[in-house]
């Protein structure tokens, strides 16, 4: 722990990075949520527009705190504060943003190296955009039963999603992630770190883990969870309908049992939690 602290990433500094990334990215997404997206031809200036903020912070500080902070900021500022909280569907965005920013931050060993920063600044958004495109395709596949049977549907879904991905990456990615990050990282390097009381990141004192197989494995797990969650939130009703088919005659009984079980669970949880707090 002490060696870790000497390298410039104590728990409280991680919390500072979390708070910094959360408030800045939250503010940016809130503004972009309130102002309808501007469309210039086929170029859409949307939320990806502001992804340069967490990318810059993830390169300069602890990547995981910056990534989690950005995803939390988006959730709290633009979803909960505006009352647009969609439940499970938001988890997919949370995970893809976290993974994209985290990997981009890990790719940079030395923030002074412009080439490293440039490669990471375009790879991060690319990973995030690719993951959300795959999630969208899988969602359509799950929602439509005979996906392959409908003539032209698979091709059109792949084409539109692929085109949206390339469009976002080429225009939003380069204009609003790559260039601003290249502008901000060298300027902030060495200036913003003392404000949080830590040393600038160099290859020698880097405390962040390298981009290893473990990180990639965990990212893959997160991605799969995102797909599953997106499908459940989209196609939840079809699962229930399938269950109802074999229980058609006793459907009322099953509904009754279900309602009773849910109520019992809530009451039990309530009692347990109250007791826990009372005995503390």
């Amino acid at each position: 722990m002490s060696t870790y602290a000497e390298r410039g990433a104590t728990q409280s500094q991680k919390l500072m990075v979390f708070v910094l990334s959360m408030s800045l990215y939250g503010l940016a997404t809130l503004i972009s949520e309130l102002i309808p997206s501007v469309q210039i031809g086929i170029v859409e200036l949307s939320v990806e527009f502001f992804l340069f903020i967490p990318l810059t912070l993830a390169m300069l500080f602890d990547p995981l705190s910056a990534a989690l902070g950005a995803a939390t900021g988006e959730l709290v500022f633009s979803e909960i504060m505006l009352g647009q909280f969609g439940g499970l569907g938001e988890l997919e965005k949370f995970l893809t943003v976290t993974i994209g920013v985290y990997i981009a931050g890990l790719m940079v060993r030395d923030p002074r190296n412009a080439k490293q920063v440039a490669i990471a600044a375009i790879t991060g958004p690319a990973i995030q955009l690719a993951m959300s495109a795959v999630v969208d395709i899988v969602k359509v596949q799950v929602a439509v039963d005979d996906f392959e049977a409908v003539a032209g549907l698979p091709e059109s879904v792949f084409a539109t999603e692929g085109f949206a991905f390339l469009n976002d990456l080429c225009f939003s990615g380069i204009l609003f992630c790559l260039l601003p990050t290249l502008f901000l990282v060298p300027r902030l390097y060495g200036k913003i770190e003392p404000l949080l009381g830590c040393k600038p990141r160099t290859p020698e004192n880097d405390a962040a883990p390298t981009l290893s197989g473990r990180v990639i494995a965990w990212s893959a797990v997160g991605f799969i969870v995102a797909i599953v969650v997106a499908c459940v939130s989209k196609a939840g009703f079809s699962i229930i309908e399938w269950e109802a088919e074999w229980a058609e005659s006793q459907i009322a009984i099953f509904t009754g049992i279900g309602v009773a079980a849910v109520v019992a669970l809530i009451v039990a949880f309530w009692a347990r939690r109250s007791a826990q707090l009372r005995n503390a």
């Binding site: 409280s12 919390l15 500072m16 708070v19 910094l20 408030s23 800045l24 340069f52 903020i53 810059t56 912070l57 260039l179 601003p180 502008f183 901000l184 300027r187 902030l188 200036k191 913003i192 404000l195 949080l196 009381g197």
Partner: peptide, 19 residues
């Protein structure tokens, strides 16, 4: 984009105070 440069520095100071 440029105005985020001072904003980031100011917010960094503020988040240190908060934490």
């Amino acid at each position: 984009v440029q105005s985020f440069y001072p904003l980031m520095l100011n917010t960094a100071k503020r988040s240190r105070t908060t934490v």
